[in-house]
Structure formats: C-alpha cells, structure tokens
Amino acid sequence: MHRFANPTRFMKVADRLFPFVSAGFLALLAWGLYGALLASPEDYQQGSTVRIMYIHVPSAYLAVMIYGVLAACSASVLIWKHPLADLIARASAPVGLVFTVLCLATGSLWGKPMWGTWWDWDARMTSVLILFFLYLGYIALLNAFDDPARGSKPAAILALVGVVNLPVIKFSVDWWNTLHQPASLLRFDGPAMPASMLQPLLVMMAAFTFFYLMVLVIRLRAEFAAARIRTLRITGASE
C-alpha cells in the first residue's frame, strides 16, 4: 500500500489500466442495458417499471460503497497521512454525491407508480437523504479553507463521524417497518430474485463500478494537475 503512496508511481499504473477500465465499462454497460431493457422479463406486478431497478440499485450500491471508500481513505489520511488516500477521497466525494442524487431521483420516479408517492419519510429514504447531506458537508468542509490542503483533515474527521450512517442505511429496512422493501440481494438465504433479473442487475452493478473507476482516474489526473499548478504558483514559476 505504501509503495503506491507516491502519486506519480500510482498514476503510471492507473494510466495503464485506464483504457481497460473504460473499455470494460462500455462493454458491461452495453451488455447490462441489453439485459435490463430487452432481455429481462417484466415483473408480474410492476410491469416494465421494474426496469428502474437496474439503475436504482447500482446507484444506491455505489453511493454507499463510495462513502465506504471515502471513510477508508479518510482513516488512512488521519493515521498515515497517506497523500494518495487524500487525493482519492477528494476525487471520490462528488462522484458519490451524484450517485446519491441519482439513487434518490430514480427511487422517487419508481415510488410514484408503485407506492403512489414521490417521497415517503421512511427510514431507508431518510438515511439516504442524510448520506446526501453528509456528502454535501464533506465537500463544503473540504473547500472551506483558504489553503486548499488545510481542509483535508477536518473533512476526513467528518467522513469518519458520518460512518455511523452506513449501517443505518443497510439495516433500516430490517429495524423499522418501512415502505421500502427489505433486502433482496445480500441475504443469508441467497438473493430473492429470479436469475433472469439478477444477472442483468449484477452486470449493471459491475458496469457502474467500472464507471466509478474510470471517473476516479480522470478526476485523480485533474486533482494531480491542480496540486502541481499550486506548487508551481507557490514556488513562483512562470510559463
């Protein structure tokens, strides 16, 4: 792990992986969309609206997963002052924010035809909304200081404080009686879903993960360039 603490060395590897990640994303997305929109069956109750699931569930998974990445990176920023972890956390936060919004938006679009309401203040939705606010707070705190490097540690502490929300999101459907359906993927007795729907869903989740990796590399390049420009400015170099 510390071998890649040097961002230059890490970016060399990341740049080499980038074409594979992008190609993998496009291939998986094409396969997943075909499976989700054409090949998978309609739900016997929900009809075609069930296809919202193929966007909604991967977004929710990424929203939570990226927060996990953020928290892990924040911990290693605070413990080891790992410079790369700081960059990854910085680059991941807006991506996580967007997926949280996507999750809330598709959930609300799915909720209207199925539950008859755009929004219900049940435990799952409220805890995801809190996740959205945590992302907002994290990004705001990161950029709240005149010296851009100064925000990374306060933001890291905030990210770790916010971790209490992750188990609440996961188990909210079990702890409270909610409108949102209980877990159907991660269960002790295996996924409660026919294989014809499960397969495109898993492909879509993989596609979304590859998308995250792809955007992460692009954003890391940008963060990296920004950091370099800052040091150049400080050292007083001109073109």
Partner: peptide
C-alpha cells in the same frame, strides 16, 4: 462541539457548521 471544532478557521464558519451538524442532529 465536533462541528464547531471542524469549522475552526473556515470561511463562513456559521453556515458551514449548520451543514455539518444538522444531518448528525437528525
């Protein structure tokens, strides 16, 4: 106290504090 300590020295600390603290108050 966590929110107040985190926003020490930040620009517009008051507004920032609201953003940090209110979700945790829920």
């Amino acid at each position: 106290a966590v929110g107040a300590a985190l926003s020490l020295g930040a620009r517009r600390a008051g507004l920032l504090m609201a953003l940090l603290v209110l979700p945790l108050y829920m």
